[in-house]
């Protein structure tokens, strides 16, 4: 197999890797915020639910969650497994990453000085205005480095989709490697991931720079 064929074949899988990556972020970032808000809620059932959610999803391997989300519905309710594997894969990744994002948000929200809330309250801001105008922008600024960390991890974690036979780049790379007894696909995979992460770091670096116009 020529290097060109290997790269072409793996590039096809890379589209799926990107799909997992972007869709996971799209859903996990807001879902994590909801979990974080529930976690901080004074209403016990909400905060209790969020605590259990975070504990279970952080306490079990993502690989297991992928299998559970993909095949659980079939075993429990007899619902056939989706032919479009992207759906269960993204659901599993999103609920898993939401748990991590929720904890990052929480640390950010809890690090906010109480004076910011009080100043907003005295000025008459509603609770929603206080959260979205005053607190959230500062929280984002504070947690951005941790978020970047998670995003870089996500790029590499996408390879776990092989567990449920989603033909993303690394799954294909492994198949080629073992079929052709060649290490080249692994080198190609490494290059793909590295270049992707360099891009991610560059973009996040730009975002951080744009937000660092003030000191906390």
């Amino acid at each position: 197999m020529t290097l060109m064929t290997i790269i072409t074949k793996m590039a096809e899988g890379f589209e799926k890797t990107c799909a997992i990556f972007f869709l996971t972020l799209l859903f996990a970032i807001p879902l994590g915020m909801i979990i974080a808000l529930l976690r901080g809620s004074k209403f016990k059932p909400f905060s209790g639910f969020a605590k259990v959610y975070i504990s279970v999803l952080r306490g079990t391997p993502l690989m297991l969650q992928l299998i559970a989300v993909t095949y659980g519905p079939y075993y429990l309710f007899g619902i056939s497994v989706s032919r479009n594997k992207l759906i269960p894969v993204v659901v599993a990744f999103a609920i898993n990453y939401a748990a991590y994002f929720a904890e990052i948000y929480r640390s950010g929200i809890e690090s906010m000085p109480v004076g910011q809330y009080e100043a907003a309250q005295v000025l008459g801001y509603s609770r929603a205005q206080t959260f979205f105008k005053i607190i959230l922008p500062q929280v984002i600024r504070r947690i951005l480095p941790s978020i970047t960390n998670e995003i870089v991890t996500l790029v590499k974690d996408t390879s776990l989709a092989f567990t449920v036979s989603y033909q993303e780049m690394f799954t294909i790379g492994k198949q080629i490697a073992n079929s052709q007894t060649s290490f080249v696909p692994f080198i190609v995979a490494g290059a793909f991931y590295y270049v992707f992460n360099v891009l991610v770091s560059f973009v996040m670096g730009r975002v951080e720079k744009r937000m660092s116009y003030y000191k906390i």
Binding site: G124, P137, Q138
Partner: peptide
């Protein structure tokens, strides 16, 4: 009622962003 008064804090509590 909040529109009737203003409060200046010891630590300013300006919005840094």
């Amino acid at each position: 009622f909040r529109h009737v008064f203003g409060l200046v804090f010891q630590n300013f509590n300006l919005f840094p962003h």
